[in-house]
């Protein structure tokens, strides 16, 4: 797999007096993957996201994004052409007063030709299911719709990677589902690499890779299944575990081991079926 982002012994602190938010972090992100970065507030996960596209520069060590060192100011545009970013507050990242104008903002900045922008904007809005709202004013949209507009704005720039910093933290369940569906579509239809920073563990269930951050360091790194089976560790750092898995774990502790590691309710039902069948025999 292609490495797209490299963290090499990265440490970061916001000022000299303050404690380091990231501590000697080394890790890589790969092309085409849906990576989920989990951690509670203050674990350093948002700082890491901002280091990826040069919004922050490492205090020590270096971050190489798509071959460009983020510490070099000349590389800024090249990095951001490749990596788009979506933030937590849906209100504070929409620039224009009409949805489609906002989606066009990025491509306009890149100096793309008029007809090409039009095409990209329409396609991006269709992909996130916001095409019928193209002439709407952003402030009349729901949080989930605004976030999808923001995502469309990145798609229209045709970046190869998209970093989302807690994009669902301020949304209701419906909005969260809409955003997550849009992200899955991005990955499947366009093959864009996704780095999702969140504290909702259920959003990590469908990721290719989960990185759990704690106290400025990587605490667990692996597939969702590998990560979530570490129930006690996750709980000890204040993170939740998917409820179906927690139920299976509780059953196991009471002497009923249904086997497997069910992360979703459907998986639980499947495991349970298998379990009752073998038991029945």
């Amino acid at each position: 797999m292609n490495k797209i982002i490299e963290f090499k012994n990265v440490s970061f602190s916001y000022s000299d007096e303050e404690e380091r938010v990231l501590k000697n972090l080394s890790l890589d992100f790969y092309e085409g993957q849906f990576t989920c970065v989990l951690g509670h507030n203050g674990s350093g996960k948002s700082t890491m996201a901002k280091l990826i596209n040069a919004l922050l520069i490492p205090t020590e060590g270096s971050v190489i994004s798509f071959g460009f060192d983020t510490a070099d100011e000349k590389n800024e545009t090249d990095i951001r052409r490749n990596i788009g970013m979506v933030f937590q507050n849906p209100d504070n990242q929409i620039v224009a007063t009409i949805v489609e104008d906002d989606v066009a903002f990025g491509p306009e900045n890149l100096g793309i030709e008029r007809s090409e922008i039009r095409q990209r904007v329409d396609e991006a809005l269709k992909l996130v299911d916001m095409y019928e709202y193209r002439r709407h004013e952003p402030h009349r949209l729901s949080g989930g719709q605004k976030q999808r507009v923001a995502i469309a704005g990145i798609i229209a720039m045709q970046t190869r990677c998209i970093v989302l910093d807690e994009p669902t933290a301020m949304l209701d369940p419906k909005g969260r589902r809409e955003v997550m569906n849009a992200l899955m579509k991005l990955k499947e239809d366009l093959g864009i690499s996704i780095i999702l920073v969140t504290h909702f563990m259920d959003e990590a269930v469908n990721a290719d890779r989960v990185i759990v951050m704690n106290d400025g360091e990587v605490c667990v790194d692996g597939t969702p299944r590998e990560v979530f089976t570490k129930v006690d560790l996750l709980k000890s750092i204040g993170l939740a575990v998917p409820k179906p898995l927690e139920l299976a774990e509780a059953l196991r502790k009471s002497g009923v081991d249904i086997g497997g590691t069910p992360l979703t309710s459907q998986e639980f039902v499947n495991e349970y079926k298998k379990f009752t069948e073998t038991r029945g025999q």
Binding site: K243, L247, Q266
Partner: peptide
């Protein structure tokens, strides 16, 4: 509305005939 996750496990289990 969302249902609690455990509830949805139960709803699925019922659907599966348990």
């Amino acid at each position: 509305l969302d249902v609690p996750e455990i509830t949805s496990v139960f709803i699925e289990l019922k659907k599966a005939g348990f």
